[in-house]
Each structure stands twice: as structure tokens, then as C-alpha cells.
């Protein structure tokens, strides 16, 4: 079991007795890049949050590297949706990145110079070191996304859970996110990424998890990213909305 970075069994999450996720079971092998795909309201963000214990689970079990999340915090990094925080908060980019180190620093201890150095190194890796001392509202959307990724990188985790890191970013940010994903995989680590653009799924990921409140399919891109599965995940909507994407999707399947 320990070759699974994440294993989910019979997961059910309900919001006001309305099930958002029902009977999900899947495993994510260590070292894979997984795209979570599904229509709006499919429960993609909820899935990540439920795994991390941010929303209560009604039933089922989630294991990270074979153990409960609270015992694996040091190996799991979470990149929330960019819109989930207040970017007017009076704090610099480098301070946000240093937050990734707070667990290591521990309760009550202050952030030290070496922590800020590590944060700056992570910003440099994301190519935005020059903005380290800027207040975060003065950053573009793409730069803000890179700050979030730098904050995850500084945690030096083995599994990265990312909620739409590609949403509303410029082309160069998208490229550097892809490079980071590749680097994560090259280091033998794992990333699970909520993704919207069906056209790039084949290029970016090697595994796919198709979701629409229930698990539609989970497996390698070649096995799972198929027209019938997409149709089952998106219903009739896909045909109207994403025709070019479908064309790409069918191309070599």
C-alpha cells in the first residue's frame, strides 16, 4: 500500500445532507502527475479539501502514504485556489511563502532570517524573486499563483495537492507551473492537480481522475481520457462547450 501517495476508499461528503461526493474509491501511485477533471460543481475542490480534513467526511477513509493525514502533514503540501484568500492582506510575497515553513518553525517561534532566505530561494525558482518585497495586492494574477506555488515548494513535500493552479494565469506562468510539475515528478514526487483545460490534459498529466460527484474513471491518460468517459463526466454539455478540446481528446485514442 505504501507505493500509493494517496488512497481513498468509499469517500462520501455531504453538504446539508446533499451528497457532494459519493462512494469515491481510488489510488494515486507515487511519482505520478494526476489531473482531476470534471464539470463545475463536480466536487473537485471538495475532494481535495476532504482529503486534507478541511471539510468533514461523512464516511470513508483517506490515507496519505498509508497513514492518516495528521501523521503525514510534513509530506503533503496544499495549494488552495488563488481566489480563496484576501490578496489585500498587508503582507509581502516573501512572507506568504515563509508561511509554508510555519509547521517547521513551530508554535510561538518567530520567522528567522534563514526561513526568509529559503522563501526567497523558492520565489527565485518560480522566477519572481524581484517581487519578493512587494505587498501581495501589487502582484498580477500569475505572480500571485507563483507565490502560492513557491509556498508549496518551500514545504519540500512528497505530495502536492493543487486547486486550479492554471486558472486565469498568463502563458509564461502556465509554462513555469508545468515546469514545476515536471520537476516534482523528476524528483520521484507526486502531484494531484485540479485542471479545467481539456486540451492540455494529455500534455501535462500521465494520470487522470474523472469526477462528477461520483468517480467516473481513474487511471492512465491513455486508458481513461476517452470520449465515452468524458461524455459520462460532462453529460451533454461538453459537446457544445468543448468541441475543439474533444477533437484533441479523440485524436490519438
Amino acid at each position: 500500500m505504501s507505493d500509493l501517495a494517496l488512497s481513498v476508499e468509499d469517500l462520501t461528503v455531504a453538504y446539508q445532507s446533499e451528497p457532494v461526493l459519493q462512494d469515491l474509491s481510488f489510488g494515486v501511485p507515487t511519482g505520478s502527475l494526476v489531473g482531476i477533471i470534471g464539470p463545475n460543481g463536480a466536487g473537485k475542490s471538495t475532494l481535495l479539501k476532504a482529503c486534507l480534513g478541511l471539510v468533514p467526511i461523512d464516511s470513508g477513509e483517506v490515507r496519505f502514504f498509508g497513514a492518516a493525514h495528521r501523521d503525514m502533514r510534513h509530506r503533503v503540501a496544499y495549494v488552495p485556489q488563488r481566489e480563496s484568500v484576501d490578496w489585500d492582506f498587508p503582507i509581502r510575497a516573501v512572507d506568504v511563502v515563509a508561511m509554508g515553513l510555519y509547521r517547521q518553525i513551530g508554535w510561538f517561534w518567530p520567522v528567522r532570517r534563514r526561513h526568509l532566505r529559503a522563501a526567497r530561494a523558492a520565489l527565485e525558482r518560480m522566477g519572481i524573486l524581484e517581487f519578493a518585497d512587494r505587498q501581495i495586492s501589487q502582484l498580477s494574477g500569475g505572480q500571485q499563483q507563483r507565490v502560492f506555488l513557491a509556498r508549496a515548494l518551500v514545504q519540500d513535500a512528497d505530495l502536492y495537492l493543487m486547486d486550479e493552479p492554471f486558472s486565469a494565469v498568463d502563458a509564461s506562468t502556465e509554462q513555469s507551473v508545468v515546469e514545476i510539475l515536471r520537476a516534482i515528478q523528476a524528483a520521484g514526487k507526486t502531484a494531484i492537480v485540479i485542471h479545467h483545460d481539456l486540451q492540455t490534459v494529455r500534455e501535462y498529466f500521465d494520470r487522470v481522475l474523472l469526477l462528477n460527484r461520483r468517480l467516473i474513471a481513474s487511471g492512465t491518460v491513455g486508458d481513461v481520457f476517452t470520449e465515452p468517459n468524458l461524455r459520462r463526466a460532462y453529460g451533454g454539455r461538453l459537446v457544445h462547450v468543448d468541441r475543439p478540446a474533444m477533437a484533441v481528446g479523440w485524436g490519438d485514442s
Binding site: L54, R73, D86, F89, M99, G100, Y102, I105, W107, F108
Partner: peptide, 22 residues
């Protein structure tokens, strides 16, 4: 003063705080 770091983390990003164990 004592919880400055924790207060700023939980005010800015409570989700991250929880995943870090705060």
C-alpha cells in the same frame, strides 16, 4: 506578540493553517 505568526497565518489562509497543523 506571542502568536503573531499564527494569527497572521490563520487570518490570511485558514485552510493552509489547518493543513499545517495549526
Amino acid at each position: 506578540v506571542g502568536c503573531f505568526k499564527e494569527l497572521s497565518l490563520t487570518s490570511f489562509d485558514p485552510g493552509l493553517a489547518e493543513t499545517l497543523g495549526f
